[in-house]
Amino acid sequence: MSSQSAQGGSAGGQPAEAPSGPPYVSQFAQHGGIPTVKVDVPICAVFLACFLAGAILNMTIWKRNGRRGHKFLLSAVVFYFCFARMVACILRIVWATRPDNVRISIAAGILFNAGVLILFVINLIFLQRLTRAYHPNFGWSKTLNWTFYFLYFGIFACFVMVVYAVVSSCFTLDRSMLSNFADIRRTSAIYMAFLSTIPLPATLLLLVWPRKRAVDKFGQGSMTAKVVILLITTSLLATGSIFRASIGFMPRPKEDPGWFNHRVAYYLFNYFIELVVVYILALNRMDKRFHVPDGAKLPGDYSKGATTADRNAVDDEAVLNEEKPTTPGEERSRENEWEMSLQREMEYK
């Protein structure tokens, strides 16, 4: 989470000139700088189109799965993330046409900070499902459940604190209060960087930690593919969040911004990374790979309902071959008939 998204930089320095307001214009270089029509509008338009395509893709998957009775709410969540990023791009375009409007910059900064939190939550949900698959007893324990609840609450609390700090810092010139607001933003940014990185070491630990029972598989595709997807998306999101946390500790004056304040770094470490993650999840069909049976609440529930859940999703190859998917009961019936015919053959001989 960027600590400079709307107010910009640290609040510990002396303003170069007496600002007009409130709300007051920050005297420090902002992450991404002040947008301009010539440069930022075309770039934001491209990202707007890309996120629109991502939103359409995820909503199409969500609707198709709904008609099949295949419930996977996270596809709709990614759709709302894309929608939020579209609004953020629109606000930045509006800001480019009104660069002196501080209220628009505040709204753009708040929405920018809010969007990426959705992807952090999705990765945590994937991590929880992998934990329950590889180590069911620990994965379904109350201790781990409350740990994830605490992490989710921390996301909400950090967002509320950042919104409060960003908005309040635009309505005061008191250096002591500005310094406190900057500390709040830095603390929240560090927590979000830590949160975005958690799935990386946690997933690796799941693989090397000795298991007491077989993997409780879920969804379609191999478990290795699920692990790889989570590691890639986590690495990308962690890169962006660590970058945003770092620039909070390197405030620069508005007249002399650092390379990390420029547009290239802003769009690369934020919108581009998030766009890649959106398409990785959608094109690799997270709705099939990370789907778990409804009502799963105990160790072993994933694998017990995996076969039925996958067949309810209607396998694409079965549709192409015009084959009707068999149910577990039909498979057992076929196995019993095969065993009885084999016994009769042996008795005859």
Rank of each mutant, 00 (worst) to 15 (best):
Q7I: 09
D183L: 00
Y266C: 08
D216W: 03
T234Q: 04
V166H: 02
I247N: 03
E330M: 08
P325D: 06
P299R: 09
F79C: 09
A133V: 09
Y302W: 15
G219I: 01
Y152Q: 13
Y24K: 02
R186H: 12
Q14K: 07
M250Q: 07
Y24R: 01
C89A: 12
G295P: 14
R211V: 14
E339S: 08
G109D: 02
T224S: 09
S10T: 03
E317I: 08
L173D: 00
M250G: 01
S188M: 11
S222N: 15
D40Q: 02
G219C: 10
H70Q: 14
R92N: 05
G305D: 04
L52P: 05
E339V: 05
F72N: 03
A282I: 03
H70W: 14
R332G: 00
E255Y: 05
A157I: 15
R103G: 09
Y149R: 11
F112Y: 09
V166C: 01
E347P: 06
Q128G: 09
F51Q: 02
F171R: 14
G240T: 06
L231Q: 10
A16M: 13
P136G: 06
P299W: 04
V208K: 12
N123V: 08
R344A: 14
A6S: 13
F120K: 00
S196A: 13
W338K: 14
A318D: 13
Q30V: 15
L200M: 15
V228S: 07
K71A: 15
T60P: 02
K217R: 05
G21Q: 05
L173Y: 00
L173G: 00
R64I: 11
M223F: 10
R85A: 03
V39F: 10
A214S: 15
I90F: 15
N261D: 08
L281R: 01
V228N: 14
A49N: 13
I184L: 08
Y348V: 14
C89R: 01
G115W: 02
A189G: 10
D216Q: 04
P293F: 07
Y164C: 03
L178P: 00
F138R: 10
F126D: 04
F260K: 06
F120Y: 08
D100L: 08
A282V: 02
I56H: 08
V277Q: 02
Q4P: 03
L91R: 05
E339G: 04
I104W: 03
R211D: 12
Y191F: 13
A157H: 11
S241V: 07
Y271C: 12
M223E: 10
E330S: 14
T143G: 04
I184F: 06
K304C: 09
W140I: 13
A309C: 11
V277D: 11
D183T: 00
I198G: 01
Q14A: 15
N65I: 09
D216M: 10
Y267R: 09
T147D: 14
F194S: 12
G240I: 03
K297A: 13
S188E: 08
N65A: 13
Y149K: 08
A245M: 14
R263A: 13
R332C: 02
G240V: 06
V87P: 04
